[in-house]
């Protein structure tokens, strides 16, 4: 597609605390730009104090998460050509986390949750370069594509609407828990925490996390549902319970 210029109307959330407003800008852009470029242009030309968090501009650092026209997205991976040239583009920060200023939110809750997860625990006879079959690696490798953009956390209604930060770790950490639980060399048992602390039962499989993940990780199908099935094995399956009681 040929490159051409046009004026894009943007409405960007500005401010912090109680003092929040939507500010309109008109930016000259070209169709090859991404939304982050347009915001940088606003910074350069009109509002040098506009706060945006970004780093790689390549969809790999996970810093530039925000909401464009109400959908959680990476600013640096959202091409202007995917949006209307005439309608106003609305850019807001992630809704779920405490606002710092403008488009920047405080995502540190996520790092605290991460620390609660028991780390990888290899067996005692673990060698320095253990051999694993590719077939095992495939499943866990997919989870390791996560760039910790926290868009899935932002969109998940358990956190976003119900604000159950106290009992639910969110889809990003279900992915991490799945990558550890399914690891063939891991010896730790995290199933009790997955149910009782990290709250696998709070997810109602509505799959918004999967819809927004920029790394296309099938979060619900490959991480959350398999973990729920493992929780059922341990806590809800009456036959398995009887077998465990009899055979120990």
């Amino acid at each position: 597609m040929a490159e051409y210029n046009y004026n894009l109307k943007m409405s960007v959330q500005r401010g912090s605390g109680e003092d929040i407003s939507m500010v309109n800008y008109e930016v000259e852009v070209d169709s090859k730009m991404v939304v982050l470029d347009a915001l940088h242009k606003i910074q350069t030309d009109e509002a040098p104090d506009l706060s945006i968090r970004w780093n790689c501009k390549a969809g790999k650092c996970g810093s530039c998460s925000a909401e464009i026209n109400g959908k959680p997205k990476l600013l640096c991976m959202s091409k202007l050509s995917d949006f209307s040239e005439t309608e106003v583009m609305v850019v807001k920060p992630m809704h779920t986390f405490p606002l710092i200023k403008d488009l920047v939110t405080d995502v540190s809750w996520n790092y605290l949750v991460n620390k609660k997860i028991k780390p990888f625990s290899p067996p005692d006879n673990f060698k320095d370069d253990p051999k694993m079959m590719q077939q095992e690696v495939d499943r866990v490798q997919e989870f390791r594509k996560c760039i910790e953009c926290f868009l899935c956390q932002d969109v998940c209604h358990v956190l976003r609407s119900h604000q159950r930060f106290d009992v639910f770790a969110g889809p990003r950490f279900m992915v991490r828990l799945a990558s550890l639980e399914m690891h063939p060399l891991d010896t730790e048992d995290r199933i009790p925490e997955i149910k009782n602390v990290f709250g696998s039962g709070l997810c109602n499989i509505t799959k918004c996390c999967t819809e927004v993940c920029p790394e296309s990780i099938p979060i619900t199908d490959e991480a959350i549902i398999p973990l729920k099935e493992r929780v059922v094995d341990r806590y809800y399956d009456p036959l398995k319970w009887i077998v465990r009681k009899i055979f120990g």
Binding site: E67, G70, K71, P72, H95, D154, V155, H157, V158, R160, S161, H162, Q163, R164, G199, G201, L202, C203, N204, I205, T206, K207, C208, E211, V212
Partner: peptide, 30 residues
């Protein structure tokens, strides 16, 4: 479960759209 939670219970009706009811801080999901 995805279909009926979205289409009938609006919990949530669509991604990044808030619920039909008042925020339920006691939500227990499944």
């Amino acid at each position: 479960r995805k279909v009926y939670h979205r289409a009938f219970l609006a919990d949530p009706p669509a991604c990044a759209v808030s619920e039909l009811r008042k925020v339920n801080h006691k939500y227990k999901g499944e």
